[in-house]
C-alpha cells in the first residue's frame, strides 16, 4: 500500500511536468493552429533561466589567495560573489541559496518576451502554412536555441539545487497513518507538485473568468467567427503564445532541482509532451492536464517491480520501456480523438 502511495506521488510529480508542458502546447494548437516543435525548447529556456540567475548571483570579485594552490600549483583565485559583498555574507548566501524560487520572478518576463518575439517574429507568418512547414520551421528553431544554449553552457548537466530549507525529504506517510519511514518523499518534489497545481489552476481561472480568456476560448472554438466580430484576435493570440511560453518556462525553472538541466532536455520532453497532448485530445486543455497526470502515474506504476514481473509473466518484458506508447495506442484506438479531443481538430 505504501509502495502504491509512493508511486502515485511520483506519478503526480512526473505528471505535473508533463501537464504543464502539454498545457501550453495544446493552447498553441487550439488557438493558433500551430504545431510547435520548439515547445520543448521553451521548457529548456525556462530551466536555463534558473541557471542564468544562479550565474548572475554568483558573479564574483576575484582575489588571489597565495596560501592555497590550484591544480597547477599556482596561487589560487578566490571568488567572492558580489551579492555577498553587497548584502553581507549571510544574506548574500541566502539569496544565492534561494536562486531557483527567485528565478520564477526572473523567468516570467523573460519567457513572455521570448514568447512575444517568437510569435511576432516567426510563428505569425506560419498560421496559414501547412502543418508540415510549421513542424520544419519550429524544429529548426528548436535546434538553433539548443545549440546556442550548448555554446554558452556546455553539454553537461548543471547542478541547480533547491534551497537548503526545501532540500530534504519529508515523511509523508506519517500524515496518513503509515509507519514512520514508509512513505518518505522529497520536499522539493512536493513543492513542484503544489506549484504546478497552482499554475494549472491559474491558467484555467484566467481563461474561465476574464474577458480575455473568454475570447481565447471562443477563438479555440471558431477562429474565423471571432475574427469577424472585430475583436483584435491577433494581439490576443500573441499574448496566448506568451502565456504558453511562460507556463512551459515556469515548469522548466522549478524542474531544475529535480534533474540538473542540460541543453537537450527540451528534446527529451518534446516527443513525450506531444504524446500527452494527443492522448488528452487535440485542443482540449483539461484533456492535456488529465493525460499528463494519467501517463505520469501509469509510468510510475510500470516501474514497480511487481508490475514488471506481472507483465513479464504474460510475455511483455520491460513494460516500463513502452508503457507510455502502449497507453497512447490503446487510448487512440478506443477513443478516436483522445480522451477529451474535439472533432475535426488536427484530423486532416
Amino acid at each position: 500500500m505504501d509502495a502504491i502511495l509512493l508511486q502515485i506521488l511520483n506519478g503526480l510529480d512526473k505528471g505535473s511536468a508533463y501537464a504543464l508542458i502539454a498545457l501550453g502546447l495544446t493552447l498553441i494548437f487550439g488557438t493558433l493552429g500551430v504545431v510547435n516543435f520548439a515547445h520543448g525548447a521553451l521548457f529548456m529556456i525556462g530551466a536555463f533561466c534558473a541557471v542564468t540567475l544562479q550565474k548572475i548571483l554568483t558573479i564574483s570579485s576575484v582575489s588571489i589567495d597565495p596560501e592555497k594552490k590550484d591544480f597547477l600549483g599556482n596561487p589560487m583565485e578566490v571568488k567572492t560573489p558580489y551579492v555577498e559583498s553587497i548584502f553581507g555574507e549571510a544574506t548574500g548566501q541566502l539569496i544565492i541559496n534561494w536562486s531557483v524560487p527567485l528565478a520564477i520572478l526572473f523567468a516570467i518576463p523573460v519567457m513572455l518576451a521570448v514568447g512575444y518575439i517568437m510569435e511576432r517574429g516567426l510563428i505569425k507568418h506560419f498560421y496559414k502554412r501547412p502543418h508540415a512547414d510549421q513542424i520544419l520551421v519550429t524544429f529548426g528553431l528548436a535546434i538553433v536555441i539548443q545549440e546556442i544554449v550548448k555554446h554558452y553552457y556546455g553539454a553537461n548537466p548543471i547542478p541547480t539545487p533547491a534551497p537548503d530549507a526545501l532540500r530534504g525529504s519529508f515523511d509523508f506517510g506519517v500524515l496518513l497513518g503509515f509507519d514512520p519511514n514508509a512513505v518518505i518523499y522529497p520536499l522539493w518534489r512536493l513543492v513542484y507538485f503544489a506549484f504546478s497545481a497552482l499554475v494549472i489552476g491559474a491558467v484555467f481561472a484566467f481563461l474561465q473568468f476574464t474577458t480575455f480568456g473568454m475570447v481565447v476560448r471562443a477563438g479555440m472554438a471558431d477562429r474565423e467567427t471571432v475574427g469577424l466580430l472585430g475583436i483584435n484576435i491577433d494581439r490576443r493570440f500573441t499574448l496566448t503564445f506568451g502565456i504558453a511560453a511562460a507556463v512551459a518556462g515556469l515548469a522548466g525553472v522549478m524542474y531544475t532541482p529535480i534533474n540538473s538541466p542540460n541543453y537537450h532536455m527540451g528534446m527529451d520532453f518534446l516527443v513525450l509532451s506531444f504524446v500527452v497532448v494527443v492522448v488528452g485530445g487535440m485542443g482540449s486543455l483539461p484533456g492535456a492536464v488529465l493525460a499528463g497526470f494519467l501517463l505520469g502515474i501509469l509510468e510510475s506504476f510500470a516501474a514497480m517491480n511487481e508490475v514488471k514481473s506481472f507483465f513479464e509473466a504474460i510475455y511483455l518484458p520491460s513494460i516500463d520501456q513502452i508503457i507510455i506508447y502502449l497507453v497512447a495506442i490503446i487510448v487512440l484506438l478506443t477513443r478516436p480523438r483522445g480522451l477529451m479531443g474535439r472533432r475535426g481538430v488536427m484530423e486532416e
Binding site: M282, I329, E347
Partner: peptide, 16 residues
C-alpha cells in the same frame, strides 16, 4: 486514425 492522431500512433509503434 488520421491527422496528428495517425502521426502519434506511428510514432508510438516506432518508439516501442
Amino acid at each position: 486514425r488520421s491527422g496528428i492522431y495517425f502521426s502519434i500512433l506511428t510514432l508510438a509503434f516506432a518508439q516501442m
